[in-house]
Amino acid sequence: MIEFHNVSKVYSNGTKGLKNINIKIYRGEFVVTVGLSGAGKSTLLRSINRLHEITDGEILIDGQSITAAKGKELRHLRRDIGMIFQSFNLVKRSTVLKNVLAGRVGYHSTLRTIFGRFPKEDVELAFRALDRVNILEKAYSRADELSGGQQQRVSIARALAQEAKIILADEPVASLDPLTTKQVMDDLKNINQEFGITTIVNLHSIDLARDYATRIIGLHAGEIVFDGPVEEATDEKFAEIYGRSLQEEEFLGVAAK
């Protein structure tokens, strides 16, 4: 379980990224957060693994405060959280296999990982993760030789090899075409269902949110304005989230950024 208790974030320029957030996200949920750019989606997501530090409040993961964690405790908590970025965040000159093995870094000493001395079990785990997202044949290709969709599937494989209990995906399909978008979202959903990995995805697309989420959280100006199951996310609710009525093409595709 991920718990937000009175969480707020104020940036150095005075901008309020989050305003008194109180939510619980339960194990195995597939949560999609929606809202305009600047609504606080990325801040909310990245505060879970402390890529963004909050200003007030506390975030608990399975009862442990990641907000207060330091040193070894923080590393162990982060080890259970896989992160998927819009820009893939791969080492482009390295092979796909090495990029997936990066998910094992948190389990070994710094010296071992610098020299790439991963045990056989880790390599086998990486191969299984690549097979799970259907790009095993690309294991020895350089990451920059892959298409955008393939690169994003490498980042999903990396989270699988990490044996993450939570996957955070920040606009993972924003730069992908519709067919590849479906493949990536299908991978995330299938992994969520098969392994029970709690998955939180930031999206702009309303249709994708409805198709894949078990729960939708709507943010507007740093505040939660909707939190409920997909069936309650009506057109009227989305209009409240986005602060205006939406055009038909926005429901069919991607809401304005």
Rank of each mutant, 00 (worst) to 15 (best):
Gly28Ile: 04
Ile21Met: 00
Val31Ala: 08
Ser47Tyr: 07
Leu97Cys: 01
Gly116Asn: 00
Ile54Ala: 07
Ile23Cys: 10
Ala233Trp: 05
Ile241Ala: 04
Gly196Ile: 08
Ser47Arg: 03
Arg112Tyr: 07
Arg158Gln: 06
Leu176Thr: 11
Ala255Thr: 09
Ser245His: 04
Ile166Ala: 01
Leu203Thr: 01
Glu223Phe: 06
Arg132Ala: 09
Tyr11Ile: 07
Ile217Trp: 01
Phe238Pro: 02
Ser94Thr: 04
Asn99His: 02
Gly228Phe: 11
Ile191Thr: 11
Arg27Phe: 02
Val230Lys: 03
Ile84Lys: 09
Leu101Gly: 04
Leu160Val: 12
Asp211Trp: 00
Gln151Gly: 09
Val100Ala: 07
Asp131Asn: 14
Arg75Ile: 10
Leu90Gly: 01
Asp177Lys: 15
Ala143Cys: 08
Asp62Lys: 11
Ile217Lys: 06
Glu53Tyr: 10
Val34Cys: 05
His5Phe: 15
Lys9Trp: 06
Val154Lys: 08
Leu168Val: 10
Gly71Ser: 10
Arg46Leu: 05
Gln150Ser: 03
Ala159Cys: 15
Leu45Gln: 00
Glu250Val: 07
Asp211Cys: 10
Ile81Thr: 05
Thr198Gly: 12
Pro172Ser: 09
Ile156Ser: 04
Val184Ile: 00
Ala233Tyr: 13
Arg27Lys: 15
Thr199Asp: 02
